[in-house]
Design a protein around this nucleic acid. Structure first.
Length: 303
DNA sequence: TCACGTCAAGCAGAT
DNA sequence: ATCTGCTTGACGTGA
């Protein structure tokens, strides 16, 4: 078990997700921004290593407009050395990495143009991880998409489009249950069709489910991951009290987290804390998890 | 230096 | 029809 937080770190004053307006696109601007983002990523990774946070989600904004037609720049080659350096840092410290393309990426859209642009964006994500020379355990997590009034048909459309994807993307894509449309059970249906690994989002499951126990989901999830995919990934969050169901908490509910750690034995997985205060909650979580025999520690790996 | 309108992209649900 | 949320504010013009 490794624990981490997504994309940005509020402590070190450098977030690595800088972007700019499409209107002000230029090659110089792109280079300058990516340079900044990669340096920040290194800083965040070093912070994480120091604090035993060995799971991290890399922002989709690392290379702004990478999949947009406006971008003709060969950023892959230009930043090859620096990206490889980052990959070495990750591999040396045996860190787990994920990425999460945002809401515009809809593989089962009824609009062919949306699907095409989504695939381009997925390709960009895969390229970042490939350039870092990370193995198949580094994953790109995506929701199943829209419902369009017919969930079954929409899942079948997802499966059809998935089957046409480049291996480069298929190697890394995993599907996550959401809190509005596709429950974990729906994702299992998808897994049966295309054998894609499933990422279990505990919080989404609490909002949208089919009355299955968490243990039941963890058992079924485990079977969707092959050995080379690594141990399963899990998103953890808790409800922001007084806000709409599904609203993410500002900081971690430690009692709930501790209870989940106890209840989830003997399953092993890496946990992404989707909590708004980021590393602050992650550090508290690590403190609690230190008592758990499942936790992988940096000293043990290097020793 | 700061206020504030707007930002590449999709979809669903609430208002 | 328009707004909000999603993993999250922050870019950039105008004064």
């Amino acid at each position: 078990m490794k624990i981490g937080y997504p994309c940005i770190n509020w402590t070190i004053g450098c977030k690595g997700d800088r972007t700019f307006r499409l209107k002000s696109y230029s090659e110089e601007r792109l280079i300058e921004t990516v340079e900044n983002n990669l340096n920040c990523l290194i800083n965040m990774l070093n912070f994480n290593i120091k604090n035993n946070l060995l799971f991290f989600r890399i922002t989709s904004d690392l290379v702004p407009f990478a999949s947009h037609p406006i971008c003709k720049f060969d950023w892959q080659n230009h930043f090859k050395n620096k990206i490889q350096e980052i990959g070495k840092l990750i591999n040396k410290n045996n860190m787990r990495i994920s990425m999460h393309p945002d809401q515009f990426i809809v593989l089962n859209s009824k609009t062919p143009d949306v699907v095409e642009r989504s695939i381009a964006e997925l390709y960009y994500h895969a390229e970042v991880l490939d350039l870092m020379k990370l193995d198949k355990t580094a994953k790109i997590q995506l929701h199943a998409g829209g419902a369009y009034g017919n969930k079954k048909e929409s899942l079948e459309r997802f499966a059809d489009n998935y089957n046409k994807l480049d291996e480069k993307i298929k190697n890394r894509l995993v599907i996550e249950n959401d809190d509005k449309i596709y429950s974990f059970k729906d994702c299992l249906f998808l897994h049966e069709k295309i054998k894609v690994p499933l990422l279990f989002d505990l919080f989404h499951h609490r909002v949208l489910n089919n009355k299955e126990s968490v243990e039941d989901c963890l058992e079924k999830q485990r079977k969707t991951w092959e050995k080379e995919d690594g141990i399963p990934l899990l998103d953890y969050s808790s409800q922001k009290v007084g806000f709409r169901p599904g609203s993410h908490a500002e900081s971690i509910d430690l009692k709930d987290f501790e209870k989940f750690l106890n209840d989830s034995k003997p399953y092993d997985f890496d946990i992404m804390l989707e909590i708004k205060d980021k590393e602050s909650s992650a550090l508290k979580a690590i403190n609690i998890a230190e008592k758990d025999k499942r936790l992988v520690k940096i000293s043990e790996q290097n020793g």
